[in-house]
Design a protein around this nucleic acid. Structure first.
Lengths: 255, 255
DNA sequence: GGGATACAGTGTATAACGTACGGAATTACA
DNA sequence: TGTAATTCCGTACGTTATACACTGTATCCC
């Protein structure tokens, strides 16, 4: 690990490498305190409520003082994403399948707890200690099961995407996001019913009629989640078996 | 399908129900022409280049005239998402598995062709004729295979999420999005190498060393895509078999 | 045919927000 | 003690979305 100087400043601070300043007044803030404030606002009012001014106000400092810790609002968002993530569950002695189940569920849970993450996170690759630790734990466990390299990264991304998808669905259904539709989630079903004609959209019309879009209570949502996750894990299990059979520590073959 | 009056205006127009105006000058624009212009800008300059003013300029009209067709910029974005989606592949006589393979691949492809979709789309549930047609075709095919209701919707979402995940990865790797890191995708690997210590992040460190994050040429990316998709489809296939065995047209049991 | 009327398009004005810049206060080191 | 680094702050500016009032035009009704 080289010198920290040429790292993007926020990234450095996210990793706890705050510059040891010698002269001048003591810094009155921490990146951590700033992100905490911003997260509190986002949780309460949604991402739209997060303004440089509102964050500063909550900390009783001027707007501009924040720019000593982040170089832009985008930086702040990046730091928020990492700070909002809890520590991932630790593998312990769990079998890979049990662990990944936990991992994915916990992933979904913290996304659902901070819905605004869904508006920011997906684009940018992880750069903070927390988000990278999530990735690491998944890779570690997959490594223990005999999968590595790009393959493992791919699987981790897919599981992560599944968590995002589940959290999105869940959030949309509970209508927490800005009351998206005219009258929330029930409004969405109603809207679809008005728009969709069975001629052009036979499958969709059937699904609507079967109530598949109805607001789902939590336990149903969770059954659906487990169900889809099982699909994924079954596939992974098959792959692991195949790898175990075909090779020792050999690399993956490619055309 | 009821009267169109109380539909959100943009939604109505997305579905081709432009109001048949009787008096006054003919509208000089179409929602379609507006979204096309906006999409062209987004493709060329990224989502940030899409301003009400820039879109209007490209159409040689004043900024404010757009507000006759959309009630806000958010509306415009919603309409763009739908307009940017091509028609989904038609099932024809394909087996469900072949069709869903095509479907998912085509999904990923159009997302990758318009990377800005990844910044907008995931939040909002589909409301336009194109995006809903995508959903419909998946549901139709799944229905033919014996799956319906919430289960089928779930599977479709999962496949869609997988396409998003693949497109995101692909875009991040080719560094098309704003040159995200300091020096693009190679910069990301370098950054990770500098931050991650093998003690705290064993799995991640191993993956980095194995070059799993290296920029991947297209064909490798595609192999990875097919690979992950196979996992999913295997899971679905197992489910279909189970359903076929256990029941006729009966409903899904729940506690 | 001649108004009245509704409606498309425009210009100007406003408000919100991010952020550049320069100054003042503060602390460590020479 | 003075000097330099460094923090925080006030003000100012530019960008962007959008409200409002106005102008012109094409249809409807008489």
């Amino acid at each position: 690990m080289g010198s920290d100087d040429d790292l993007p400043t926020v990234v450095a601070r996210m990793w706890g490498r705050e510059p040891a300043s010698r002269r001048g007044p003591r810094p009155g803030l921490t990146l951590r305190r700033i992100t905490d404030a911003a997260i509190a606002i986002a949780d309460a009012e949604g991402l739209a409520g997060v303004r440089m001014s509102s964050v500063a106000a909550r900390l009783d400092v001027s707007t501009m003082s924040l720019y000593g810790y982040v170089t832009s609002k985008d930086d702040l968002l990046t730091a928020m994403v990492d700070a909002a993530a809890p520590d991932p569950p630790e593998p312990g002695t769990l079998a890979w399948r049990d662990y990944l189940t936990r991992w994915t569920r916990a992933h979904r849970d913290f996304l659902a707890a901070h819905p605004w993450l869904l508006e920011v996170s997906p684009l940018t690759p992880p750069v903070g200690p927390r988000t990278l630790r999530w990735l690491d734990r998944a890779l570690t466990v997959l490594g223990g099961a005999g999968l590595g390299g790009a393959e493992a990264v791919n699987i981790a991304s897919t599981l992560s995407a599944y968590a995002v998808s589940a959290a999105t669905l869940q959030t949309a259904m509970s209508g927490t996001v800005d009351e998206a539709g005219p009258e929330g989630p029930a409004g969405y079903t109603a809207l679809l019913a008005r728009l969709v004609d069975p001629g052009g959209y036979p499958g969709l019309a059937a699904a609507i009629e079967s109530g598949a879009f109805g607001a789902a209570p939590d336990w149903v949502e969770d059954a659906d989640f487990t169900f889809g996750l099982t699909l994924l894990l079954d596939g992974i299990e098959a792959l692991i078996a195949r790898r175990r059979r075909s090779a020792g520590p050999g690399a993956r073959r490619r055309p």
